[in-house]
C-alpha cells in the first residue's frame, strides 16, 4: 500500500464524474478529493490523494493521461512572502482555485491556503519571487 498526492488538470470539455468513478471502480483505489475547482467553460483542477497498490496507482495515472487529464505530483506547501510581495495581483490571474486573490477593500494579496491545490502554476509568475515552495 502506498499513498500519492496528485494534481489533476481537466481540460474544459472533459466531464469529471465518470473518470473519478472509474478510478475507484476499476483500479480498486482508495480515492480522496482533497480540493477541487471545477467551473463550467474553464479548465478544472483537483488535488487528490490515492491509496493502493503501486501497480494500481500507476495504472490509474496512465488511464488519466489517456483521457486527456494532466497529472502532476503535488508540491509540499506554497508560501507567499509578505515582505517581498508588492501586491500587484499578477499571480491571481494564474491561480484557478482563487487561493490567491486581491482583497477588494485593502487591495492587498490574500493567500487562502485551504483553497490551494499545490499545482505550482503560480511559482514562476511572481516578478519579485514572493511565492515559494516550502519544503
Amino acid at each position: 500500500m502506498i499513498k500519492r498526492k496528485l494534481v489533476l488538470s481537466f481540460p474544459e470539455n472533459i466531464v469529471t464524474k465518470p473518470i473519478t468513478y472509474r478510478l475507484v471502480k476499476e483500479f480498486n483505489l482508495e480515492f480522496n478529493i482533497l480540493r477541487a475547482e471545477i467551473t463550467p467553460n474553464m479548465e478544472g483542477k483537483m488535488l487528490i490523494e490515492l491509496k493502493g497498490d503501486k501497480a494500481q496507482i500507476d495504472g490509474a495515472v496512465k488511464y488519466l493521461s489517456q483521457t486527456g487529464v494532466t497529472v502532476q505530483e503535488a508540491a509540499k506547501d506554497i508560501i507567499t512572502d509578505k515582505n517581498q510581495c508588492v501586491d500587484c495581483g499578477l499571480c491571481t490571474s494564474i491561480c484557478i482555485t482563487q487561493a490567491l486573490v486581491l482583497d477588494d477593500k485593502s487591495h492587498k494579496l490574500k493567500f487562502n491556503k485551504d483553497k490551494c491545490i499545490l499545482c505550482e502554476l503560480c511559482l514562476d509568475c511572481c516578478p519579485v519571487s514572493a511565492i515559494k515552495v516550502h519544503i
Binding site: N41, D87, C88, G89, L90, T92, S93, I94, H107, P127
Partner: peptide, 17 residues
C-alpha cells in the same frame, strides 16, 4: 469569445494608492 478568463494586474493598485 464567450469564455470566462481570470485577470491579474502587473502594476500594483495597492502601491499606487
Amino acid at each position: 469569445n464567450g469564455k470566462s478568463v481570470q485577470t491579474g494586474s502587473i502594476s500594483s493598485y495597492f502601491k499606487a494608492l
